[in-house]
Simulated scan of single mutants.
Amino acid sequence: MQEYNIGRLNGRFVVVWYEEDGRRRRYRLDAETLECAEAEARDVLLAQAAGKGELTVETIWKSYSATVEGRPVHESMEYTGRSVLPWFGALRPDQIGAHDCKAYISDRRQAGIQDGTIWTQLGKLRTCLNWAEKTGLIDRAPFIERPSKPAPKERYLTRQEIAQLLAVECAPHTKLAIRLMLSTAARVTAVLELTWERVDFERGQINLRTDEGQRKGRAIVPMTKGLRTALVEARKAALSNYVIEWAGGPVKSIKKGFKAAAIAAGLPDVSPHVLRHTAAVHMAEAGISMEEIAQFLGHSDSRITASVYARYSPEHLRKAASALEFD
């Protein structure tokens, strides 16, 4: 979205911007508060762009990104846009066809990009266009063809490997993030967004949800004894409201720190998501019901959980197998 300023004229809010030819444009708004003026101004600029046939994928992408600013997904949108926008940015949504998606998939594969990454990249494009349809910016979002989603990775850590990872010397915020992911089965984003008011030492619970409600894979889970000890120590040294902090502020990413820790532990193939998978596998191996594991993972349907983790349970298909005892 182009740059603009919000001001006041005769007691009313106005939005001011400059056209490409340098002409200054001003539009009087109906909003009565600065917050409402900000929202209305964006609608005005989007309508202006649409009226000139300029509502391109790039415009929509940037507008959607603005709605998630301040959240980790915003950084992801910025990064993914470097790959997606050179291909689709100049197009209007109605100009996108299946051949464009197939050409993008082919090009990314030739560049050595894995299908899982391509699936995610085109998924963000689909999200943006569906958002534009829901908000009335476009009449209909085009179908975005993606490669088949790869099967989930089977990699998880054994107890010995967990001990190796926890024993590694690394930055305190990285070590605490690792322990949180292992003990709560949380995604790394949920851990980085966790604030101290959602850590309840009296009840021994951690609320991984935000004020925005229950987001993907978020739950309220009990603290383990080991995690409680780590959190008590971290709380004493806290300089901000974020549990995972660095230099008195929130941490946007632990990719580099985590990778270094994993390599030092002799686990170069391990990613943060492997820790969530590890937690779920160990719960299943301990005979915890799929319903409880689903609640821990924040799954809305335990059938989703069972489809991935039931096979790790010691009782999985045991009754069925007993019917095949012929000796």
Rank of each mutant, 00 (worst) to 15 (best):
A185H: 07
N207Q: 02
L275E: 06
E133G: 01
A90I: 11
M290H: 02
T59L: 15
V274M: 12
I263Q: 14
E169H: 15
L227I: 02
F13E: 04
V221M: 00
D269M: 05
S322P: 05
S313L: 07
D200R: 10
V199L: 05
E291H: 12
R276I: 08
R25I: 08
G136Q: 00
T184W: 09
E32D: 08
A230S: 12
V14T: 15
P142E: 07
A151Q: 13
N130M: 06
I206H: 01
T305V: 10
H316G: 11
R28I: 13
E40P: 07
E315Q: 12
Q164K: 14
I254A: 02
R187W: 03
H273W: 02
L180S: 03
E285L: 13
F13H: 13
A31I: 08
Y312W: 12
N241C: 11
I178A: 01
A163I: 03
T174E: 06
N5V: 12
G217K: 09
I118M: 01
A261H: 12
A286P: 02
L137D: 04
A310P: 00
H99K: 13
G213H: 07
E3R: 15
P93E: 09
V308Y: 04
Q95V: 04
G89W: 03
S76R: 10
I263F: 06
G257I: 03
I178Y: 02
E161Q: 15
T135R: 13
G123K: 12
I6E: 05
R108Q: 09
W17A: 04
V191Y: 01
V84A: 10
R311F: 02
Q48A: 14
R198F: 10
E193Y: 02
V308R: 04
R198L: 08
W119G: 05
F201I: 01
F258V: 02
A41N: 01
E292L: 15
I113Q: 09
G213N: 10
I304H: 14
G136T: 09
T56M: 12
A103G: 09
F201S: 12
T80W: 00
K259W: 03
W61A: 11
V191G: 11
K153H: 14
T135L: 03
H273S: 00
P250A: 04
S300N: 11
D94L: 03
T189M: 12
G266Q: 00
S313Q: 10
A185E: 01
G204L: 07
T67V: 04
P86I: 01
R8W: 00
G217W: 14
P314N: 11
R155F: 00
E69S: 08
G7T: 12
Q121P: 01
A98L: 15
A141S: 14
G89Y: 05
G123T: 08
A163F: 01
T305K: 10
E32K: 15
A90Y: 14
V16C: 09
G116H: 03
F13R: 09
P222I: 01
A284M: 05
E19V: 00
S302T: 07
G7M: 05
N130C: 02
P250H: 06
K225S: 15
T33S: 15
L157A: 01
R218W: 01
R28K: 14
E3A: 15
L125P: 00
A171D: 14
